[in-house]
Computed example of a mutant assay.
Amino acid sequence: MSIGNSPEDDRPPFEDDRPSIGRSLQQARIDAGLTVDEVSASTRVRVPIVHAIEQDDFSRCGGDVYARGHIRTLARAVALDPAPLIEQYDEEHGGRPAPTPAAPLFEAERIRPEPRRPNWTAAMVAAIVAVIGFAGFTLFGDGDEGSGKKHVAEGPTPEKTTPKPTPTKTVPKPDPSESAIAAVPQDKVTVKLSAIDDKSWISAKSANGKLLFDGLLEEGDSKTFQDDERLDLILGNAGAIELFVNGKKLEDEFEDGQVERLSYSKGDPEAG
């Protein structure tokens, strides 16, 4: 009988014939026809970390939690089941950390709100304010009643009279041409265009060639132009336009669809 180690201790240690985690990932990547750059691009795991994991160097992962996450991500990228690799990692690195126990729950009966004490100061202030308000209301109410009695003693209340409406004076309408001529300034040339029957395209320029308007005048719309010397007009549909020059309506009969080029200066309207 020998004293020392038992026969079981003399047996050779168990050797794991499984390939390493890095070797498994590398071989699966090669079998899938992927490069390290392609795996890095699809998983967003940096190229140096992929190389290190394939060499079974997990120091660049930043901890066991990140190492497990990288192994799981890389395994899925190369169509490999991550569960056996995670289990192998736990066996080789001391297993998963023990979960942190949850904090004990507080018992509801231990958390009791303190009873609120009556706020006697606020109650007293409210009572004082109420008394002052009542006294003031009574005082002013009595004063109003006394003044009312004196007013009745002086005599009857005068009857209310409804003011009679002021008759509206009818002002005769002046002659349109004379009022229009008086309204426009005499030292300028003024032209008013109104589209009465249809729309019309018009263009208006001042004496110095400045474009005052160039566009469509819709039916019912009006435009008024002024210049110190002269106004040059182009009417695209002259028959639809009612024309006032220096406050005077022109009686020229233009035809529908007719294009007219007109020029007007100060004084009596004169077509150019």
Rank of each mutant, 00 (worst) to 15 (best):
P174A: 15
S265M: 09
A127L: 08
G62V: 10
A207T: 07
D144P: 05
H51C: 14
A32H: 08
P269L: 03
E145N: 11
D56G: 03
D57S: 14
A41L: 10
T35G: 05
D232E: 02
S200R: 00
L231R: 02
P113H: 12
K199N: 10
K173V: 13
G133K: 06
P101I: 00
S2M: 07
K248C: 01
K210I: 11
G257F: 13
R29V: 08
A98F: 11
T35V: 10
Y264Q: 09
S24C: 07
A240G: 02
S263T: 03
R116H: 09
T35A: 06
I128F: 04
A52S: 10
E38H: 11
I128Y: 06
D144N: 01
Q186Y: 11
S147G: 09
R46L: 03
L25H: 06
Y264T: 04
T157G: 02
I128M: 14
Y89G: 00
Q258K: 00
L211H: 15
P156Q: 07
F106H: 07
G62W: 09
L193V: 04
R18V: 03
T224D: 14
I49F: 06
T166N: 05
E145I: 14
G220N: 10
I132R: 10
Q226Y: 07
Q258M: 04
N237G: 11
F254I: 05
M124I: 14
D17K: 07
S40I: 00
I30R: 12
E251V: 06
K173G: 15
T190I: 08
S265N: 08
S20A: 08
S222F: 13
T121E: 00
D187V: 01
P104H: 12
A182W: 12
L216Y: 01
I241D: 10
A52V: 02
G63T: 09
F254R: 15
T157M: 14
D228N: 09
Q55H: 04
P115F: 11
V171E: 06
I3V: 04
F244L: 05
G94Y: 12
L217Q: 02
F134W: 03
F14V: 02
V47K: 05
I202Y: 07
R46E: 05
T170R: 13
V184Y: 04
L139P: 10
G62Y: 01
K266P: 08
A77K: 12
F213K: 07
Y89E: 12
G267R: 10
A207C: 07
W120V: 09
A108M: 11
P165S: 02
I49L: 04
S206D: 14
L80Q: 04
G143Q: 05
C61M: 09
R230P: 08
D90N: 08
Q226R: 14
E260Q: 15
D142N: 03
P172E: 07
G63N: 07
L74F: 02
V191I: 01
L212C: 00
P118Q: 07
